[in-house]
Design a protein around this nucleic acid. Structure first.
Length: 350
DNA sequence: TGTGCCGGGGG
DNA sequence: CCCCCGGCACA
């Protein structure tokens, strides 16, 4: 700790990193230390929707964000770009396979954080000698050496998608399956039948009858076992509908889609605090695990956000550690801007 | 008493 | 806009 703030050949300006005048925005977060460190702090959290634009603009532009290569399928209406979903699932499947094979295979960087405190790898960083300039951890996460990890981190959320999708497929031995496509709602008794239905009718495929990439999974749900998750969410919104027949949910599918996005975006926001390791190492782990967002579009219909009508306008107060707690008063320059301005923290949102 | 952050003010 | 802070509701 005391190694922090190396000789810093730079200007021997005020030693306390506290509010570094804040005049030059370029170096504001950098404070005095090494140059690579500064940006690392902010960059370490790519998921964090720094510009609120991402927060609000996402729903609209989000879909158009990634230029889907083979985009031509009628799916675009949904928030999961076909191409991406496919890719992610493949990756997820791969990861899962390796996981199920050896749950202790923490070595895998990409998957690491989905198990255990996961912070281990992060905190390693401080080991870096002062020579490298960085005294503090923030820089570490970016340069984490032993991580040949593929571009996964942010995609973490999609992992779960793949997982639940797989799960579903597995358990899809009994019960009914309902198509979640906008105005379809078709119910079949076999998963394979449903997949075929979706593939043919909605996805417009046919040639690849055998190799189902699993994308169909996103568009149908199992009524029997999947019901719990369905009603679970629906109950929150539709207290009136007793049978809670799924169909009524479809019409809303479209209008609500955008709402679903934000809630999804928030997921990746949880694991971001890699730096957090410094303080509470035994927390981060639950984030990735308990997310388990249902891949089914229906889930999206139950953002539970609009459900809250009144109550006090004031937020119940997040229990997540905010910048202040994490970095401490004397690292104010490491706080997210919002925190510095005494606004709602946008780095560790809850 | 410490913390998160709304509402408002100055530049 | 950006930056800051008084003050309140929580914990």
């Amino acid at each position: 700790m005391e190694a922090e703030r190396p000789p810093a050949s730079g200007p021997g300006c005020g030693r306390p990193p506290l509010r570094t005048a804040g005049r030059d925005p370029a170096t504001a977060p950098v404070s005095v230390p090494a140059p690579p460190q500064g940006p690392a702090v902010e960059f370490a959290l790519p998921q964090e929707p720094e510009p609120r634009a991402a927060d609000l603009g996402a729903p609209g532009a989000g879909a158009a964000g990634p230029p889907t290569p083979s985009a031509h399928i009628p799916v675009p209406a949904h928030r999961t770009p076909p191409g991406k979903a496919r890719l992610d699932e493949v990756m997820a499947a791969t990861a899962l396979t390796s996981l199920s094979t050896s749950p202790l295979l923490l070595g895998a960087p990409g998957v690491t954080f989905s198990t255990e405190p996961c912070l281990e790898p992060w905190r390693e960083a401080p080991v870096q000698p002062p020579g490298s300039g960085g005294g503090w951890d923030p820089a570490s996460d970016q340069s984490s050496p032993s991580t040949p990890s593929p571009p996964l981190p942010p995609e973490a959320a999609h992992f779960l998608f793949g997982e639940s999708a797989l799960r579903k497929r597995k358990s899809s031995l009994q019960g009914l399956f309902q198509c979640l496509w906008k105005r379809c709602g078709k119910v079949l008794s076999s998963a394979s039948g449903m997949q075929r239905h979706i593939r043919l009718v909605h996805l417009g495929r046919q040639a690849e009858l055998e190799q189902s990439d699993g994308e169909e999974d996103f568009y149908y749900t199992e009524l029997d076992s999947g019901m719990d998750s369905l009603t679970d969410g629906l109950s929150g919104l539709t207290p009136g509908s007793p049978t809670a027949s799924v169909p009524p949910a479809f019409p809303h599918l479209e209008p609500l889609e955008p709402l679903a996005l934000p809630s999804l975006l928030r997921l990746p926001a949880m694991p971001p605090p890699p730096v957090l390791s410094t303080t509470s190492p035994s927390q981060g782990c639950l984030a990735p695990v308990r997310l388990e967002p249902q891949p089914t579009p229906v889930r999206a219909c139950v953002p539970a956000l609009p459900a809250k009508p009144s109550a006090n306008p004031r937020k119940p107060r997040g229990d997540a550690k905010k910048c202040r707690k994490v970095y401490g008063m004397d690292h104010r320059d490491l706080w997210c801007t919002a925190c510095r301005w005494k606004k709602a923290c946008q780095r560790f949102l809850d």
